[in-house]
């Protein structure tokens, strides 16, 4: 393993320090791995917070700022943050208008956020929770953990954050977040595994001619191993699964995201976007906006995910609203 780190145990702590050094408009809560907007709690505004394991940068703290998140809790690499830290985040960002927690559907995240919400509620904070589960690779069923939350989460941050910035109350902000969850689907793939600082070697082994389809964002193997394919074939596979699940009708409008897993050159993501847009064109689906970049990564993994979000006028307005964060800036 070769990494630009000092020691595996210090990665999260030092990364957070380096982040605050680069973005002095963020603030680290003393003795925690929680970053918040420097001006948190923001008077008169519902707070939108998120959190989860580290290793997905710019997720989560990269989306702190005007028009997106108020707080972001960083767990160890790929390990959800502990409930007490989540509780501190909730308390520190609540301005009395309540806090919406955006949680990706993993039992660890859900259980810790649940506990934190209970703790915060005991202190009189109004807390709502939205669980994102956009990953179509995983079968959804009552008897299982359901679908994972992956890159579509960024759209939830953006829309809920914009709604809160526009003065929406906790109910309205939560409703927007749920609307995004209902309308976004994602599927991902990996060309290579990733190397966590603690383990120091690839989480799974992939042959030179193999890829993983249906991966999450934690270096876990995917739902299926396949022979290497061309970028167009891969894009087709991901996109078709996403579109079939979303049941889009001709003429509907979408916002797309080609998300890099961390180790993929941007040029390759654009090659994927090229095919994605041509598939949408062929199906008579209109792209209102196309996002291409590293939004939610898995350390150094090579691969990508394709997300499609069905949008209406409300979501378009929220997606287009200004945001100013280290990881995403939208200007009017």
């Amino acid at each position: 393993m070769k990494k630009l780190i000092n020691e595996p145990g210090a990665v999260v702590d030092e990364m957070l320090d380096g982040m605050v050094a680069a973005h002095p408009e963020l603030r680290r809560l003393d003795g925690t791995n929680v970053l918040v907007r420097g001006d948190a709690p923001v008077d008169g505004k519902v707070a939108v917070v998120s959190g989860g394991g580290s290793g997905h940068e710019p997720t989560h703290a990269g989306y702190l700022g005007e028009g997106m998140l108020d707080g972001a809790a960083a767990g160890e690499v790929f390990t959800s943050p502990t409930a007490d830290q989540l509780n501190e985040m909730i308390q520190a960002t609540d301005a009395g208008e309540g806090v919406l927690c955006v949680v990706k559907n993993y039992e660890g995240d859900v259980m810790n956020f649940d506990t934190a919400a209970e703790m915060a509620a005991m202190e009189g904070v109004e807390v709502e929770q939205v669980v994102v589960n956009d990953d179509v690779a995983v079968e959804d069923s009552l008897y299982t953990s359901g679908r994972r939350g992956v890159a579509g989460t960024i759209f939830v941050h953006k829309c809920a954050g914009a709604k809160a910035a526009a003065g929406g109350d906790l109910e309205a902000v939560t409703a927007v977040a749920e609307k995004v969850v209902d309308n976004v689907r994602t599927m991902g793939m990996a060309l290579t595994s990733c190397v966590t600082p603690e383990k120091g070697e690839p989480t799974f082994d992939l042959g030179e001619d193999e890829i993983e389809l249906g991966i999450g964002i934690h270096g876990e193997p995917g739902t299926e191993r396949a022979d290497i394919m061309s970028a167009d074939e891969i894009t087709e596979h991901l996109t078709e699964n996403v579109l079939d699940d979303l049941e889009l009708d001709e003429g509907e409008e979408v916002v797309t995201m080609v998300n890099g897993m961390g180790g993929t050159p941007l040029s390759e993501l654009y090659i994927v976007n090229r095919k994605l847009q041509s598939i949408l064109d062929d199906r008579g689906i209109e792209t209102w906006d196309a996002w291409v970049g590293d939004y939610m990564t898995s350390l150094d993994m090579m691969g990508c995910s394709v997300s499609v979000l069905r949008v209406d006028d409300e979501l378009k307005e929220l997606l287009g609203a200004p945001a100013e964060t280290p990881g995403l800036t939208v200007t009017e």
Binding site: G53, G75, E76, T79, S80, P81, T82, A83, D84, Q85, Y106, E107, G108, M111, N112, D114, T115
Partner: peptide
């Protein structure tokens, strides 16, 4: 454990 483990195993 709750304060230091995180993940699924922490709360469990």
């Amino acid at each position: 454990l709750i304060s230091n483990v995180g993940g699924a195993s922490g709360p469990l």
